[in-house]
Design a binder for these strands. Sequence first.
DNA 1: AACCAACGGTTCAAATAATGAACCAACTAT
DNA 2: ATAGTTGGTTCATTATTTGAACCGTTGGTT
Lengths: 257, 257
Amino acid sequence: MGTVTKALSLLGYFSQTRPEIGLSELARLSGMNKATVYRMMSELVDQGFAEQTRQGKSYRLGPEVLRLAALREAAVPLLSVAREMLMQLSESTGETAHVSIVQGTRLNALAHQYSPRHGTRVMMEDAEVLSFHGTASGLAVLAFAEPAFVDAVLARPLVAHTAKTETRPDAIRARIAAIRATGLAESVGGFEADVHSLAVPVFGPDAQPIGALAVAAPVARMTPDLAACAAEALRRCAADLTRRTGGFAPEPLPEEA
Amino acid sequence: MGTVTKALSLLGYFSQTRPEIGLSELARLSGMNKATVYRMMSELVDQGFAEQTRQGKSYRLGPEVLRLAALREAAVPLLSVAREMLMQLSESTGETAHVSIVQGTRLNALAHQYSPRHGTRVMMEDAEVLSFHGTASGLAVLAFAEPAFVDAVLARPLVAHTAKTETRPDAIRARIAAIRATGLAESVGGFEADVHSLAVPVFGPDAQPIGALAVAAPVARMTPDLAACAAEALRRCAADLTRRTGGFAPEPLPEEA
DNA sequence: AACCAACGGTTCAAATAATGAACCAACTAT
DNA sequence: ATAGTTGGTTCATTATTTGAACCGTTGGTT
């Protein structure tokens, strides 16, 4: 592993639940030497990718990432276009809509939009880590990902988030085969109890899935009518999003081996 | 210079005007060996900080920066709070409001908000590089920055963006001394002809300026009335923004003149 | 169609930068 | 005091980065 990769991987330990990390803790988390972590973090701080809260205290992500994100949006307006789609989705379904993207071997929620229509809503956190096997979004991605990627994901321990989470690799493979046929992924209580989600993949320039658009409703409200409406809206929005960010949907729907 | 710093500095060559850069061009820009750039970019691509448009083509910023930015916002809601302030500012002044932050020795526009009140507006680009000596925002930052920082900025060649740009270091020092007294920076046509801007600094946890809030209007519309209104709103909003992002204004707080 | 230049990508000996155990000084709770 | 933290530093050893030269392609000119 190169030095740059190691340094950047340090940034991966920050999350909503752990927004600030001290030097020793970061060394422990990464398994690297404290001196190494110190030097790397110093460089990251110099470059604005990290900053220290008070002097000589915990590290957190720095302001430079905001500038880069603004630049990335200027080049590939994924987030701004996605927000348009989320508005449409939450508007037409009356439920929570969200978009997530694949980051290496993880799936991250990126943005969400609530609908004011109902008093109860499925709540989301941006930048939350989603599981591939437990969420509709994750399944949508897996269904169109390269076999090697699927193998890698399913080789890891599969957490049972709820009593209804499917954790048997072969059962999951069967489900994603079905999803590949319809282009629509579904999860009922697989990640959060009482949440019924529908999701469709979004594709990048190489026709690989880069993420997913999803609609999430309380189980009781996801009637066949709503599901049909959401499915139609999701397909349309995802196609739009793929196209407007310079992506391509895979031409022939790949078939299972 | 460490390897990590070099790799991250490569990301600095991307801008709105140059959103995609080829391998050779990047090597030329950075003065580094092509093989070096190739390996570094490969690592950056692996980590999601960069991506290649088509296979074997130009590089651009990657999706990982979006995730980090979302995380940074969760920890320090600078951008989201700033957007609230920008709405207020553009609403109450009827002009363009924008926020910028210091990145190393550069000042970058981060977000902006237009007002629909007038047919002509001062236009902005997010992630644009601003000059310290030519903009109200830059002067606001300089006025409260450490002397060493001011020296470093003024030691560089000072570009005359317009005929009205002040480029004499001693004249600029006099101006920022005055700004320090009032807490309000002003620039008339110093960056763009026919633009009159007002700006106030925003402070970080160490009472150092991290950026600025500004209002920009066409010269003809910036009447004393509007300037007074904008100044009051800017001071209030900047104080709010500083406080809500965990910052502190320096103790000898300049009072209204 | 032959040519040339520029492109992205690759190789390998030589040179340089990263590494990590041990060590500070400061702080906290026992 | 003590013992166990913390962030930060040192320096000989080691492993990684480096860069000139080299591919195979591509795209434009002659």
